[in-house]
Amino acid sequence: MRIERLSVRNFRVFRSVDIHEIPSLAFFVGANGTGKSTLLDVFGFLRDALQDNVHVAMTRRGGFNEVVSRGEPGPLRFEIAFRDDNGPLVTYTLEVGVRNGRGVVEREVLAYQHGQHGQPWHLLDFRLGEGTAVTNEVEYGTDAEIRREEQRLDSPEILAIKGLGQFQRFAGVSSVRRLIERWHLSDFQIQAARPSQEGGYAEHLSAAGDNLPLVTQFLYENHRDQFDRILERMKKCVPGVSEVEATETIDGRLVLRFQDGSFKDPFIARYVSDGTIKMFAYLVLLNDPSPHPLLCIEEPENQIYPTLLAELAEEFRDYGRRGGQVMVSTHSPDLLNAAQIHEVYWLEKHGGFTTVRRACDDEQLRAFVDGGDQLGALWKQGLFGGAHP
């Protein structure tokens, strides 16, 4: 399922934000402090709340008083609308408050809706750990009578999609749980990816990229077609790279080795440029044989040569064509130059709170782009409202 709409209330700088018609690739730009990182952290908060509970998710961010918008009593409110191709609109709503100093789920609703004006069908409706869930959602859209079960969770801090998602009879709840669990928020660290890795096994790149050699070996041994595609893209993007391999050292550790066609011996990762390592890591992430439904990537332009950013943007776009979704925060005019106008949103801060605008809704920007101007150049000229670079 792909995210179509996001609404956020009372979460840090987002007192009231609605983002509609989100494409498979979305770029978010804005001045420092407008909340680009916070926007991506909405998905991190929801994933943390699912993996642990809402109290833990808030505590990791400094507690309720640090995450709630200044001057607002709460609750935090998130609403995400998903849709499969030609399927019903699935809306997940979560309200988080605080009771006795601990974060709790004030309300949680999971609903189906056919079309734009159909009546929502609540699969799940919970308040403070108690509520109802539908057990016959496979009959949604028929004349069948809705069957609901009363349920009670162990704690009001636990999401109902976690507590019920493990049971087969709540299939719709389980699918949303699995979707959120597989969201990936990239926090790639160059120095974490450079050291040698102890032998082991990894199929998916970690957020920091510290298991890059293990994933490279997994792709080479089990998904050679994907590995070959990564190598071909590396050859195109990074002049001289003719081979990449994960090799085992005498002490049983794995290191990445990059072969430059101009030299007889390969270079190990610690002697390769930051940009080469980072480009390779992004290609590994974007060519995962079991792709994540959502990738959130913050400022991917760091360490990457500006002329390669158009190639990276096209890799992001191709990931979307294959069914995934990518959300990117950026400060780079070069990366924006590779974006299409319907893919770009900008953040403006007024009176301490941020609004989000879509570039294609701005008549002046559309006229400039139709006339051949590039979005990055327009941004540098200050034509994105308060989103000056």
Rank of each mutant, 00 (worst) to 15 (best):
L39I: 12
N53K: 11
H20M: 10
V56P: 02
S37W: 06
V17W: 09
I19Q: 08
E72Y: 03
F45C: 09
L25M: 08
V17C: 09
A49Q: 03
F64V: 00
F45I: 05
N65M: 06
V29T: 15
F27E: 05
A57M: 04
G35I: 08
F11E: 00
V54N: 09
T38Y: 04
L46W: 11
I19G: 15
S7C: 14
A57N: 07
A49P: 09
G30C: 13
G62P: 06
L6V: 15
T34R: 08
F28V: 13
F45G: 01
H55N: 13
N32L: 00
F14D: 09
D18P: 05
V29L: 11
D52A: 14
F11Y: 14
F45K: 08
A26Y: 11
N53W: 09
G33H: 06
E72A: 03
F28A: 12
L39P: 06
A49I: 02
V67G: 04
D48L: 15
V67W: 03
L40G: 14
G71P: 06
V67A: 05
N10R: 02
S16R: 09
L25Y: 12
I22C: 12
G33I: 02
R9Q: 12
G33E: 05
S37K: 12
H20A: 14
R60S: 04
M58W: 00
T59S: 13
L6A: 09
F45L: 05
L46M: 14
L50V: 01
I19R: 13
V17N: 09
S16C: 02
Q51F: 13
S7V: 13
L39D: 14
L6D: 10
S24L: 05
N53C: 06
R15V: 02
V8K: 11
V42K: 07
K36Y: 10
R70W: 00
N53G: 08
G35L: 05
V42D: 05
D52E: 10
H55T: 04
S69R: 05
D52T: 07
L25R: 09
V54I: 03
V13F: 00
D52N: 02
D41K: 11
A26K: 07
H20K: 14
R12Y: 04
G62V: 00
G30W: 13
T59G: 07
E21A: 14
K36N: 12
F64I: 01
N32W: 06
R61H: 04
S24A: 14
V29A: 15
S7I: 10
R9S: 11
E66V: 00
R60Q: 12
L50D: 05
R60G: 10
V13H: 03
S69G: 06
M58P: 02
R70C: 00
V67Y: 06
V67S: 05
V54T: 01
S16Y: 01
R70E: 05
V17I: 09
R61P: 07
V67R: 01
G62C: 05
A49W: 01
G71Y: 00
V54A: 06
G44P: 03
F28Y: 15
F43G: 08
R5Q: 14
L25P: 07
E72G: 03
